[in-house]
Nucleic acid binder design. Sequence first.
DNA 1: CTGGATCCTGATGGATACTG
DNA 2: CAGTATCCATCAGGATCCAG
Lengths: 117, 117
Amino acid sequence: MKSGIDQVTLEHRSTCPIARSLDLMGDKWTLLIMRDALFLKGRTFADFASGRERIPTNLLSGRLRKLVGMGLLEKVPYQQRPLRYEYRPTDLGKALKPVLRAMKSYGEQHLGGHTKY
Amino acid sequence: MKSGIDQVTLEHRSTCPIARSLDLMGDKWTLLIMRDALFLKGRTFADFASGRERIPTNLLSGRLRKLVGMGLLEKVPYQQRPLRYEYRPTDLGKALKPVLRAMKSYGEQHLGGHTKY
DNA sequence: CTGGATCCTGATGGATACTG
DNA sequence: CAGTATCCATCAGGATCCAG
C-alpha cells in the first residue's frame, strides 16, 4: 500500500507530564531506537534493524513512522542513485537525552548492565 | 487460582543498561505506579487504582507483583484488624527518581503537560 | 539488495464483573 | 478493600513477500 494516513495521534491519559511522556515512549522499543539514533548518529533502516536487540522489521517501520510523525526523527535522503534515506534526530528528539542518560545510569548501577550503549 | 509462580524473571535483550532498564520499566504503567509510590507516599491498592489514569485492577495487581518481586516496592502491613498492606518504595525503587524527573521535564517542556505529578 | 508491507499466531492489554 | 476471572481487542514476533 502507498501508506495509510500518517496522522500520528497520541492518546493522552492525563495532563501529567510523566504520563504524557509515557504515552509517547512507554514501550520496549521506542527509546532503544532513539538511543541508536542519538548515540550512533545518522542511521539507516538496516542499521537500526541490525542493532543488538534485533527489533523485527515490522515493528521498526511502525516505530520510525511514529517517531517521524511526532517530530523526533526526520527522514532525510543522503544519497541518490540509488536513493537512500537516513533517520536523523531533530531537536525534539535530542531533548530525550536526559531521559536516556537517567536510564543508562539506573541500568548500570542497579541492573548489572555493562556500559557501551 | 491461588496465584501462579511468583518468579519475576525479566527477559534481558542485551547487556546495554538502557535496554535493561527498558526490560524492567518499558511499558505504559510501571513508571506511573512508581510515580504515585514515590511522590504520593505509602499507597494502598485502592489508592493506586483510583489514580487519575485509572489503571485496570488486573494490570495493577500484576505490576505490583512484578515491582515487589524485582525489589522496587515492598508490601508492608500498616494496620491490623482488618489487616491492611501498603506498597512502599525501597531504596532500589527510590533510585528511579532521576528517570521520573527527566520524563517530567521532557513532558513539561515538549508535550504540553501541566505540572503536578 | 535495501526498505519496508503482509500474514499468521500467540501474548498482552484493557474494561468490567465478581469473589474472599 | 484487595484482588481474580472473564472476555474481547490490540500488539508483539517471526517468516515471508513485494516494490524500487
